[in-house]
């Protein structure tokens, strides 16, 4: 490996997680095109991994695996959107309403290409049984909302929100609690998802009348890079 000592140190610092965010991103960019930088990273990752014996093994509680299995099961139960148009639900007023709200905030429904998530937000409500996963495919500008658990509220509609950094929440539309939704997003905030959180609030039927959350926040979670 013919990398300079400086480059090797940067690769080691990157592997350890010691670089500033900007320097780490610059190194990642470099690795995309520079096999020497990538080889330096692999060299350090593999050598440091030899310290892994020093992490004591610890058996996680049983429920972790069960929850993961439930998660996987929910994933395999997903109805591809392309099949939805054969279903009655597609023409139901609820679906139309959800679509209308989505359109109102500059988002439109689309048939997804190969969905490859870059970000995930796992929303678990502490006050209700609602559990929702939101995935974002930044490259294809796709958002996928997967309701894993919970039932519709008699008091109103669940509305999904995203906030970038300390910014104000932006609506992602009313949740369809019975179906996986995939929507296309042509918005600039996709670039800010590394520092974002999402939330679900309970709103009047049809969604917030003000464009901002008005009801109780049922779940909030950070967006996590995959």
């Amino acid at each position: 490996m013919n990398s300079s000592p400086e480059q090797h140190v940067i690769a080691a610092e990157y592997t350890l997680g010691l670089l500033s965010s900007a320097d780490a991103q610059a190194f990642e960019q470099k690795m995309q095109t520079d096999p020497v930088a990538k080889a330096a990273y692999i060299y350090w990752a593999e050598h440091f991994a030899n310290l892994s014996d020093q992490w004591d093994e610890s058996i996680p509680p049983e429920h972790i695996k069960h929850q993961l299995e439930n998660y996987l099961k929910a994933q395999s139960d997903v109805i591809p959107l392309t099949k939805l148009d054969q279903k009655e639900k597609y023409r139901s007023p609820l679906w139309a309403m959800a679509a209308a709200v989505v359109l109102a905030v500059g988002i439109w429904l689309a048939i997804p290409a190969q969905f490859e998530a870059n970000y995930q937000t796992h929303l678990v409500s502490e006050t209700t049984d609602l559990v929702v996963d939101v995935f974002v495919d930044v490259d294809d500008k796709q958002l996928r909302i997967e309701p894993l658990q919970g039932s519709a509220s008699l008091e109103g509609d669940y509305e999904l929100w995203v906030a970038i950094g300390d910014g104000a929440p932006m609506s992602l539309g009313v949740l369809d609690i019975n179906n996986v939704q995939e929507i296309s997003l042509d918005v600039s905030w996709l670039a800010g998802l590394s520092n974002a959180h999402m939330a679900i609030s309970l709103e009047p039927k049809g969604g917030s009348p003000t464009g901002q959350p008005t009801g109780p926040v049922l779940a909030v979670a950070d967006t996590v890079a995959l």
């Binding site: 997680g17 500033s20 190194f27 096999p35 080889a39 692999i42 990752a45 890079a225």
Partner: peptide, 20 residues
């Protein structure tokens, strides 16, 4: 919020050297 360890290596498509 600095020093994020977002998983570069998960995204890479380059041909890597032989694994050790």
């Amino acid at each position: 919020p600095t020093e994020s360890m977002e998983d570069y290596e998960l995204e890479s498509q380059q041909d890597g050297p032989e694994q050790c």
